[in-house]
Design a protein around this nucleic acid. Structure first.
Length: 626
RNA sequence: CGGGGUGUAGCGCAGCUUGGUAGCGCGUCUCGUUCGGGACGAGAAGGUCGGAGGUUCGAAUCCUCUCACCCCGACCA
């Protein structure tokens, strides 16, 4: 016979406590009551040595996750409970937004990817496997192709649209470098939704559903108790403000968000616009041209130092080329920004009307570019090239730049004098001074740049973890999968799609990253594996058990999940574990409290001390704190 | 992929330079004393030293190959 109270907790009594007796659906879900002794909750003092970030360390130590391989984790019962709560919230909000749940396979034949060329776009990030017949399949990273195929088979008329479908499922990405525990995995839990429309605008159009989903996302993350920002993001194929990311605000986040403190405008650095700056082409030369020998200087700061200037005094021309060559596109795109700025490929694409990529180094050298020592003058020397200059790189009388021959740089470069061929007759603020020259905003925004939304305001930077991303896909996949339907005018048209993702397992980790202290995790109530832990100081004491049972039952009736710590451990161990796991509320029951006919209640988050509450008032006291 | 590093008990580590048959802390099990913030004493269990090959009387230790994993750089939920 086991020692202690185990014999008092028969399976039957537990079932009676935690199971609904009626078959009718109830508004409030009955909470679970579990005993620690019967669960798998293994806490440790030390974290695995590879864990660095708080979320990784704490979730490992608190017994939420266990690493199986690189970027692969088991979700232990605690994590599974939290994930389920997150999923329940997601389901409720998406169903309310008119989305229907379904489930697609993780394995999909490679042919599906050929049409959309994502087998190429995803490259090595796509997990591939070969079956016994030599057929190649992929473990799905997302399901645009499959869902398009499914809907295409069933939907032939505009009358069946709009349609909005989602699934919650394990996804696979063969990340080059999985890291940071659950934040960047090779296998992870994701909610992906897809919507289908005849039009972008109007009733039932993409824009309308996109807004509905945006609201649903806001509701989801709010209900989770997360501190988050919805920011404008790089959108891909359609352009405009057609994409938003949902970021959990957190200093350890990998993404940088730019924020205008006055208007609340927020955007990913990739996307962030920059407010108007003064610029002019009309700068007369103030210095003589001079060539300098600058061998073996990796890094622009070294070169700038050798030339007696700073990175901000240099021009940084990058040799790029169209991502997809075409007859009406040049072979080379020379993008020039100030030395201390970074080129933003999305903005170059918007300025030019087509996407660009870094130029092939070998081909660039053959075309005459002295890679590493290039100047904007090359646009005059290389046929089939265009020059794109950032506003900040054009605005100044004297620049240092490459000399267009190896190991040499020039100082005293002046746009008007040294490139008279293209700037000679241009007016001071002409953004197209020459057929092959464009002046545009093509750099990333930086801290201190003028806000694009409020005069005088300066952009600030914040960090975040991306947990959700919604965007307007347009007809990319319906064209790739040739999905057309008949419209009112009996014309066949490609459907318009939207796509909406939430990294479910990542959201759980981001929540820990955002909400923890020195003692452990601090779960918001909606995501906590159990809202309440009842710590028994003397787990074998009958009166303690009775009190705990009664309180747990009434909490469960109110919909709260309760864990009863009935382990034969010393109190200190139980308190430490409760703090580590991060239950929002701890109710302590022991001889000392029972003497006064009371229990002790303590919030995990609040600074306030533990409070002694009469047993009869315990339920209400708990509810007030949850 | 480029650069750096690590594989020894469930977790954290020492031992390797200078070969001699594996140890410490936490955890686990037993007994006793304890019992409101990670107790103490006594005893016990647990390891193909990542894998293969080689050198040697003898390899965790030296050599070769290999596998796995981690950290720093370009993508993404």
């Amino acid at each position: 016979m086991p020692r202690g109270p185990a014999m008092r907790w028969t399976t039957a009594t537990l079932r009676a406590m935690s199971t609904q007796t009626s078959n009718a659906p109830s508004a409030t879900r009955r909470g679970d009551i579990h005993r620690w002794r019967n669960t798998l909750i293994a806490t440790t003092r030390d974290a695995p040595s590879d864990a660095e970030l708080p979320s990784h360390v704490l979730m490992s130590r608190a017994g939420f996750i266990r690493r199986v391989g690189a970027g692969i984790y088991s979700y232990l019962p605690l994590a599974h409970r939290t994930l389920n709560k997150l999923c329940a919230i997601i389901r409720e909000e998406l169903e309310a937004a008119g989305s229907m749940e379904m489930l697609m396979p993780s394995m999909e034949p490679m042919e599906f990817f050929a049409g959309s060329k994502r087998d190429v776009d995803y490259g090595d990030n796509l997990f591939r496997l070969t079956d016994r017949h030599g057929r190649v399949a992929a473990l799905a990273p997302t399901h645009e192709e499959i869902i398009t195929d499914v809907v295409k088979a069933a939907v032939t008329s505009y009358k069946q649209l709009p349609l909005n479908l989602y699934q919650i499922q394990t996804k696979f990405r063969d990340e080059f470098r999985p890291r940071a525990g659950l934040l960047r995995c090779r296998e992870f839990l994701m909610k992906d939704a897809y919507s289908f429309h005849l039009d972008i605008e109007g009733e039932g159009g993409l824009d309308e559903v996109y807004e509905t989903m945006r609201t649903a996302y806001t509701n989801i993350f709010q209900r989770c108790g997360l501190d988050f920002s919805a920011v404008e993001a790089e959108s891909g194929p359609i352009g405009g403000s057609a994409s938003h990311e949902f970021m959990v605000n957190c200093e350890t986040g990998e993404d940088t968000i730019m924020v205008c403190p006055e208007t609340g405008y927020a955007a990913n650095v990739e996307k962030c616009e920059i407010g108007e700056r003064q610029w002019s082409l009309d700068h007369a030369a103030t210095a003589e041209h001079q060539e300098h020998h600058t061998p073996k200087m990796p890094g622009i700061d070294l070169v700038a130092g050798a030339l007696g200037t700073t990175a901000a005094g240099m021009l940084k021309p990058l040799v790029m080329q169209p991502a997809e060559p075409a007859d009406d596109r040049p072979a080379w795109v020379l993008v020039t920004v100030r030395g201390d700025h970074d080129v933003n490929e999305g903005k170059v694409r918007d300025a030019l009307g087509y996407a660009v990529k870094m130029g092939d180094e070998k081909a660039a050298k053959e075309a005459g570019f002295a890679i590493g020592y290039v100047s904007p003058r090359m646009v005059e020397k290389v046929e089939s090239s265009v020059l794109v200059i950032d506003h900040d790189a054009v605005n100044g009388p004297t620049w240092a730049t490459g000399a267009d021959k190896y190991d040499h740089h020039d100082t005293g470069f002046n746009w008007q004098r040294d490139m008279a061929g293209v700037f000679g007759s241009a007016s001071a603020t002409d953004e197209t001074p020459h057929a092959r020259v464009r002046i545009a905003e093509v750099r990333n925004a930086e801290v201190g740049d003028p806000s694009p939304r409020a005069k005088g305001a300066r952009l600030e930077a914040r960090r975040g973890i991306e947990v959700g991303h919604i965007f307007k896909l347009g007809d990319k996949y319906s064209k790739a999968g040739d999905f057309q339907i008949m419209d009112k005018d009996q014309k066949r048209r490609h459907v318009i799609m939207g796509c909406y993702g939430i990294g479910v397992s990542r959201t759980m980790a981001a929540c820990v990253e955002m909400s923890h202290d020195d003692n452990g995790i601090v779960w918001p109530v909606p995501l906590a594996p159990y809202a309440v832990v009842i710590t028994l100081i003397k787990p074998e004491d009958e009166q303690s058990i009775d009190t705990a049972t009664t309180l747990a039952a009434s909490l469960a009736t109110e919909g709260y999940d309760v864990l009863i710590d009935d382990r034969a451990e010393r109190p200190g161990v139980k308190f430490k574990d409760a703090d580590l796991i991060g239950f929002p509320l701890r109710v302590t029951i022991g001889p000392k409290t029972l003497e006064q006919n009371s229990v002790e209640i303590k919030s995990r988050s609040a600074e306030s001390e533990a409070e002694l509450v009469a047993i009869d008032d315990a339920l209400e006291a708990c509810k007030r704190r949850l």
